[in-house]
Simulated scan of single mutants.
Amino acid sequence: MSRMDSSKTHQSRGPTAKRSETKPPRSKPWEGQGESRPHRPKSAPASQEKNPSPFRQSSPDVILLHGFHAVREALRSDQRTCLALYATEAAAEKLAPDSKAAGLAPHIVTAEDLSRRLGSQTVHQGVLLEARPLEPLDITEIPTRSGVVLVLDQITDPHNVGAIVRTAAAFDVDAIVTTERHAPALGGVLAKAASGGLEHVQIVPVVNLARALETLGRLNYLRVGLDSAAEADFTQLPLQRPIALVLGGEGTGLRRLTREKCDFLARLDMPGKIKSLNVSNACAVVLTLIGRI
């Protein structure tokens, strides 16, 4: 380059030229050239980049059990297929003998992980079990130990059904007959409320409850429907076993066809000012009375 050219070049470096050199246009030279962004490896999708979920995806053939007693009894059950156990360090330590016997190594997670999976309001007690649903029982295959069966007519509240299952397990009830529709799922909140009872009571789902009651009648069950408006007092009935105690849904009670298929409709006479009980409490009272026959 000539001296004149060099001088021109030097003179052209004014303030504007300097700003251009010190602050070049923002460019991304790595884009479109097959190169990685400098000092930053190619990142995973946003959903996987931070705190990827340790849990398996939801599936119709996988149920979630939470709560210490529900999970412990499931781990101990010969009828339950357990897939994966997630627990905080403290909960895993408490469940160590049962998880080892079940052949599961717990995945250690935080309480926050469990709350994100189950919902912030869920009382999970630091443990979650992924498992297969229990195999349903046919109504003609109900075993006879106590000679007592519960029939639930569209009881939809999982807390109530869970409490009934827990009570049924305590009284060694042979089975619980329930409708396939208008009934809560046999896991989650229901299993937590049942406090492990779900592993000890046979569940019989039916499509048509009226036909199921007819079948129980042919199997010589005495079918007694509990109805607060009934004329007969439950304690005055000629009770005998086997007996099927029929309980109605919250608010609606027993449906017409259900009532028609019962041998007796009866009420519980309460001595206090409140004459009606929650369905799960009424179930416990009646099972106590049945225990006397």
Rank of each mutant, 00 (worst) to 15 (best):
T140C: 11
L137N: 03
V148P: 14
R211A: 06
W30T: 02
L129Y: 10
E231L: 14
S12L: 05
I176G: 14
G272P: 12
P184H: 03
C262R: 13
V62H: 01
R256Y: 15
I243P: 00
A230Q: 09
G32N: 04
P136C: 06
T22W: 06
I164G: 10
A244Q: 05
L186P: 03
L287F: 11
R116G: 03
T22C: 12
A170C: 10
V246I: 05
V224L: 11
A212R: 07
H182A: 12
L226A: 15
P184L: 07
P41M: 10
K192R: 06
H124L: 09
R256L: 15
A163T: 12
L268V: 09
Q125D: 07
T144E: 03
I63R: 02
A91G: 09
G196M: 05
T215A: 09
P271F: 06
K42M: 13
A194H: 01
L254S: 00
E141A: 15
E93G: 01
T156C: 05
S280T: 13
H182I: 07
Q236Y: 10
A92K: 00
L216S: 08
A90C: 04
M270G: 03
D233I: 00
L213Q: 05
A87C: 03
V207F: 01
R117K: 04
V161A: 13
Q11K: 06
H182V: 10
G251C: 03
R13F: 13
R145P: 04
I108Q: 00
V201A: 00
A232M: 14
S115D: 04
K18H: 12
G248W: 15
F234D: 13
N208R: 08
A169W: 14
P25T: 13
R223S: 00
G67W: 12
A194D: 08
A266E: 06
K273R: 09
T110W: 07
G249M: 15
V189M: 08
A193I: 06
V189R: 10
I155V: 11
H66F: 12
P25W: 05
H66Y: 15
G291E: 03
L137E: 01
N208I: 06
I293R: 02
P24Q: 13
H39T: 06
